[in-house]
Design a protein around this nucleic acid. Structure first.
Lengths: 271, 271
DNA sequence: TCAAAAGTGTTCACTTTACACCCATGT
DNA sequence: ACATGGGTGTAAAGTGAACACTTTTGA
């Protein structure tokens, strides 16, 4: 089941709606700015790159701004009483309702004029107009069973195929952030197990292989992949097959959660 | 040549000096706080873990606080007109005079009550008393030919052996930061060349091996190390030997800078 | 029965590991 | 001469890539 619930959905007469929207929105933003000064640490933000998997290709969760139709990553600010990991966890939960997801810090983005331009038509003391140093986290989640929730700035949110990113108008340096997250993920895949949050409880090796191929962006040899993945010791073979497809029914597996999390902590071997 | 110039060196009657010191220092800190508000972005700091190598063991550059005798990492704040990498570069230069050094971001430290305690006897609006989210960078530099420069807060600065860290009083979470930097460095050593800033212009393979062993914290097999390191393609064998030692004179090498920097960018292979 | 996908086995090449051997040098 | 460290070679074990073969299934 894939539900997408996306806040307001104003439509009909486009020009009227856009004007109406921007007026409401302006007030919303200005009032949220005041609140932000109370709650958050200034100049620090978190951007999360949330990867999903549709069984074939990787997607990224993006939101679409109400007032300029640009796409951007789910993000937020650091509360005065939390650390960055908590902030990233909170932001992930706000957008996807998901908890207990592996979140990995991968880089900090601190260039000048990253964010200042976006709200240039607003008062100078607007919170959002400050310079922000953003800490990037990525997560891997199961594409299905997720109710996406857009925030007050966003008219919609959606899973965007990595492949389609180039064609979208994406805000600020968020395209660069996604690329860097993907690169960090590709590095991680060689020494940390991946898949627990991306695949259903029971899955087949061909499905797992598709996931690896989607992340790495290239096809892998079946026999070699099977050998390698089984060797890691994170798989439990079930006494069931996935019936219903054409052709031979593939064996079902689950993750051996104990081993999975141990290896997630320690890395796959060498270190 | 190893010169260490460390600001003031007050000594003699300890109790008197400490009192005198703390009074001067208090004023210095309070005035630097005012300046800081003008120059820096609040709540963001940079800590640099600068590794050195004495030919046998790894060291870390630490400073010693004037007013509580605790050791801490060279660090600083983010100027309003620079990004984090520039800040880290600037801080490294301030302490070591060195330029063009490879600096690697490795983690962000954002826990609550990281730094607030250190200046608890100062006014509440003191810059240093704010909550700081610190971005960690590490660097590798040649232990020799460096004039260390302590700052206004520090009575001295010194290269501390990794092995001796446990015995020193180290401020805040700086011990944790060093450990994490070392762990990142150990990961990096397997896919990026290391040594250009740590060894003299001309060096021998046994020297390079000692460096690797110091970083990894374990001994390596000589023959295998030679083969592996030569295979990377970053070494140029010179037509000279290091004379003077007992036993066979070892061959001298330099780094092939072109290859070195190319591989530093792209990683050693796989990726 | 057949095409297609799943699962397993085999071969070859290459890398890693362990270790042996020779070389050069100062004492 | 010999102890010590430097430099190279080699065999065994392990890993990864390519590919072939068998099995299973629905059409």
């Amino acid at each position: 089941m894939l539900t997408i619930s996306c806040g307001l959905n104003l439509q009909y007469n486009p020009t009227f709606v856009i004007r109406k929207r921007s007026m409401d929105l302006r007030e919303i933003i200005i009032s949220s700015s005041k609140e932000a000064y109370q709650i958050y640490v200034p100049h620090i933000s978190v951007d999360t790159v949330i990867f999903g998997f549709n069984g074939d290709r990787l997607t990224v969760l993006l939101l679409k701004m109400k007032f300029n139709e640009q796409w951007f990553l789910p993000g937020g600010y650091l509360k005065k009483d939390e650390n960055l990991k908590s902030a990233a966890t909170r932001i992930l939960k706000e957008k996807t309702q998901l908890d207990h997801i592996f979140l990995q810090e991968f880089s900090v983005f601190s260039d000048l004029n990253r964010s200042e331009e976006t709200f240039k038509d607003f008062p100078d003391d607007l919170w959002h107009k400050k310079r922000f140093i953003s800490v990037g986290y990525y997560a891997l989640v199961n594409y299905k069973n997720i109710s996406l929730i857009a925030d007050e700035l966003s008219e919609s949110c959606d899973w965007i195929f990595l492949h389609d990113l180039e064609t979208l108008p994406i805000i600020m340096d968020h395209h660069k952030i996604i690329k860097k997250a993907l690169s960090a993920l590709r590095k991680q895949i060689s020494y940390k197990p991946i898949g627990l949050n991306l695949l259903p409880e029971k899955f087949t090796l061909p499905e797992l292989q598709k996931l690896y191929e989607a992340i790495l962006g290239r096809s892998l040899n079946r026999g070699n992949f099977y050998k390698k993945i089984k060797n890691i010791g994170i798989l439990k073979k079930l006494n069931e097959q996935r019936k219903g497809g054409a052709h031979k029914a593939p064996d079902l597996y689950t993750f051996d959660r104990e081993n999975y999390f141990r290896i997630l902590q320690n890395g796959i071997s060498n270190w």
